[in-house]
Design a protein around this nucleic acid. Sequence first.
DNA 1: GTCTATAAACGGATAGAC
DNA 2: GTCTATCCGTTTATAGAC
Lengths: 188, 188
Amino acid sequence: MEPTTTVREQILDHAITLIMLRGYNGFSYRDLSSLVGVKTSSIHYYFPSKDDLVLEAVNEYSKEVLNGLNAIGASLPADAKLSKYAKLFGRTLGDGNQICLCGMLAADIESLPDNIRQAVQAFFKANENWLAKVLAQGAQEHTLAVNGKPENAARALFAAFQGSVLASRLFHTKARLEDVEASVRIAR
Amino acid sequence: MEPTTTVREQILDHAITLIMLRGYNGFSYRDLSSLVGVKTSSIHYYFPSKDDLVLEAVNEYSKEVLNGLNAIGASLPADAKLSKYAKLFGRTLGDGNQICLCGMLAADIESLPDNIRQAVQAFFKANENWLAKVLAQGAQEHTLAVNGKPENAARALFAAFQGSVLASRLFHTKARLEDVEASVRIAR
DNA sequence: GTCTATAAACGGATAGAC
DNA sequence: GTCTATCCGTTTATAGAC
């Protein structure tokens, strides 16, 4: 009883993976065509333009990640929440390297229309707001090191997560993500 | 008495800007052709393949940034060094937004050959090593907040700088870079 | 919905004249 | 060194048959 995945869902799912792997300018309808097994013209049937496809990819990806955030128990201690966040961040690709779709599109942002920019901005803000609350909690519990206002520290921390997944892939190691978590966690 | 810039230098300079703006897959020999005012075949004369061009762009960019690092006085207090670093990091593009060429290529790394990957890795390591020394100094001087070993904190900090220039451009603001500096600076 | 066929522009790259 | 001319594959996208 496998859940039936529609062609549309398959296209979107492969598009998400390809964007995370090679970015907006690094994949084509032809790539998707060979992955899904339909002709490029069929892909245009579901997603008339590449920008339509990418916008839906951002929305789908955002929904998944934000659902993951909501699934992190609100009653947990702050440092435990942060650990779960670090694991959830991005999506593990084939070889174990992680990358965030919205971090990738932030790099490609000068090639993208404004509606996609807004969607990526919304993803950034949602993550930063969530992290700000965790940092505020962690400061109170004396488990996380917060310098300055939680809002500012959260933006810096989110940037560090984004940068660390780039470095993780560049060096073929997951250790970079752990460095970020360790940089705010207070040793006991 | 303007310093004469050769065609080769102009090509390389525009290539650096274009890579920072749109990434490896987001610019073409045609773009360079119209910017420099020579035909694409002339560009191939200087840089036989696109990968040759990008490798030289990385080397030139690295040289400039590393020269900038060396120009930061060794006798300065750590927090002053960090301020200078934040200003030097990346390169200011047309509208005031900053971006780092090697951060951009780290995003595109899956489209690039191994010799370019190694050059980008070298840039990351050089920056991380420099930051590790500054953090160690700052910990001693009690001006910078360092959690854990300086080497690990430096990798997290460099990642934060990389992520923050992406966010700065995404949101059209320089404030994100300042958040990173503030996140390690101890208020007095 | 999916296909074939095709358009029209763009991609990196090369040969050879000047 | 720089040009013209050209190769040939790729890219996004559309029209129309089934």
